[in-house]
Design a protein around this nucleic acid. Structure first.
Lengths: 110, 110
DNA sequence: TAATGCACTTACTTACAGGTAAGGGGATGA
DNA sequence: TCATCCCCTTACCTGTAAGTAAGTGCATTA
């Protein structure tokens, strides 16, 4: 049972809202990635949006940004320790999402 | 572990995106509600937005709409059987959300 | 006759997320 | 000297979500 007055579903939805954040999280759960890696892995994302959403996730404490002062610069993005707490949540969300997609595309009962 | 190619987190986020959907879900998890009930329970929602988001949730099969042909009209909204599958997901999301809010407002370490 | 309640819909406007294109800084390679 | 690589930032524009306000239809109430 849920026994809160306010609605914290909103919190998580808000943290992961934005067209590209779920994808970013998805790939960072798998492993640490560089900016360019993410750009290649996420089709059609612009550099601006990727940078912006990474900064959002960093501000929330979910993503760690590690800069190596080399030339050319190397920046790595990874899930922070706190960000790892999202993994089980993401799993539950994924199970539901997969099922929902199946329902939508395999049994269009409507 | 998550072993999908595509990212189904997006699916759930998309289903619950829109400023008012989490709140609507929240109240319908508690119990069946009428249009006016929801309007009163959700501060600042306009009738237009409430109607629109309820229709969205109905289209996804999450919410059932029951019309009683009385005058004045009576319409009840409730979680469908399928919508109930969202309850455990919502619970996990809530736990994380509560914790995140605590972290943000009680320990502004940044 | 007019007002009220319910559950919306419609038309119009505003705000913000996102898209496009270009630049920047600093070292290396041709 | 020019181009290239990496990781962005900036300026500008567009499209969609959301806000505002009014209207609809029907029956009951005053």
């Amino acid at each position: 049972m849920i026994h809160q007055r306010e609605c914290p579903i909103e919190t998580l939805i808000h943290v992961l809202s934005g067209k590209w954040k779920p994808m970013i999280l998805w790939h960072l759960i798998e492993s640490t990635k560089r900016f360019n890696d993410l750009e290649k892995l996420i089709p059609d994302v612009s550099q601006k949006m990727l940078a912006q959403h990474l900064r959002d996730l960093e501000r929330e404490g979910i993503v760690d940004r590690t800069v190596y002062p080399t030339v050319p610069p190397k920046v790595e993005y990874s899930l922070s320790e706190y960000g790892q707490t999202l993994i089980p949540v993401a799993e539950v969300m994924c199970v539901w999402g997969e099922n929902h997609n199946k329902r939508k595309y395999e049994e269009p009962a409507s």
